[in-house]
Simulated scan of single mutants.
Amino acid sequence: MKLSAITFLWYLIVVILLFQQVACEESAKNLSNISLNLFQNVTKLSLKSNKITLEDHDKEILGRFINLTELYLNDNNITVLNNNSFYNLKNLITLDISNNCISTVHKAAFAGLNQLSVLNLSYNMIVQLDSDTFTSLESLRVLNLQYNFLKYFHIKSSFKLIKIVLAGNPWICSCDLLDLQIWLTTSNVTLENESNTTCTLPNMEKISIKMAAIQPADSLASIPHEDYSSFPVFFKELPLVGKSWTFLAGVLGFVLGTTLLIFTAVKCPAWYHYLISYRHRRLEENDSEMFEQEFSADMSPSPSISGTSSEEPIVVFEKVHACRDEEDGFIEDKYIDIYVNEER
């Protein structure tokens, strides 16, 4: 009888231990890795203010704490959240990874956390988040993303939250932020610190993320203001009509037309000078007789000069050749040479 009572008490103690919270405090111990000597039935594990990087070795150890409901990894040296970083923590409800150096969050980083309700990613260096990063978190109710480097965040309308914190990010008022704005205004979510949750307009003015006038067809609005000045002037003056085939065809036609005009303007003077530089033609039969008469008149002897013999007439033809150094602008024709040879 005594043995049965002792056995009953022992089982009662085990049941109580199983259902009560078992906390393990490993904070501020300068740990680089998660220790293997921890009690694996722990339900609350605090590893904050250490030097843990959450590499493959740490992920393997974490997977052994199947009863964890709360995990605190804030103030560590985590830089990347790889896929399946918490793959075996099916009972985890609260996860705090704030105040790290996280810049990259892979798409399936939180896979398997079906019971997760509170996720804190604040005070990190996250630049971009995939729209499907939180899809598997069906029980998520509180998401803290404040003070990261997010400029936009695509979110699906089916995402159910009670509270979200987005302040302290450099949001850009562009069409990339439109679905988040619609979700914030149409859902029942509470935007904490709403007055400080602002986005930046192209003129560098800050406005509430819920009040910004964002146009769905504003195709160039997603370009950061500091990069917009690098676009050519004619692109700035074009209407914002989107990336349609008509718009692309118009731009292509404009470029080809301009190129053709420039090519024509450069090449036309060369063709013109080539055409007017050649004026020669073959002498026709009638032209040769007329030229013979004119040449005979030129070959008539000139009056004799006093003091010279009449036997030595001065021929104009010879005088012309004596002054050959002076160019008269005419080109010698082969028909003239033939005629002179025949006369001689």
Rank of each mutant, 00 (worst) to 15 (best):
V233T: 12
C24S: 13
G242F: 05
Y274I: 02
C173M: 07
D328W: 05
L191G: 09
L178Q: 14
Y339C: 07
N203F: 01
F86I: 01
N83F: 03
L238C: 09
A221K: 11
A213P: 14
S229P: 00
F263D: 10
I164D: 01
G250P: 00
D298M: 15
K236L: 08
N77Y: 04
E326F: 09
D130M: 04
S288G: 00
E194S: 15
I34T: 10
V165L: 08
L36K: 13
S300W: 03
G63T: 05
I13K: 07
S35I: 04
C24F: 03
K160T: 10
Y147T: 10
F8T: 14
V266I: 10
I78E: 03
L47I: 03
S49D: 12
S222R: 15
E294P: 00
S158C: 03
M1K: 10
L81R: 10
P170L: 00
T186Q: 15
I331T: 13
N169D: 01
S85D: 05
A5C: 11
I66C: 05
L161T: 04
N169W: 02
M204C: 07
L17P: 00
D337A: 11
P301I: 09
M125C: 08
A108Y: 12
F231H: 07
C268I: 14
C24M: 09
S302D: 04
C268M: 13
E284S: 14
W171K: 04
L240Q: 11
E60D: 12
L54A: 06
F134G: 03
L38W: 03
S187H: 01
D287G: 13
D337Y: 07
P269E: 02
E343P: 00
N84S: 12
V165S: 13
L113K: 03
S49E: 11
E226I: 09
L145M: 05
Y272C: 05
K51R: 14
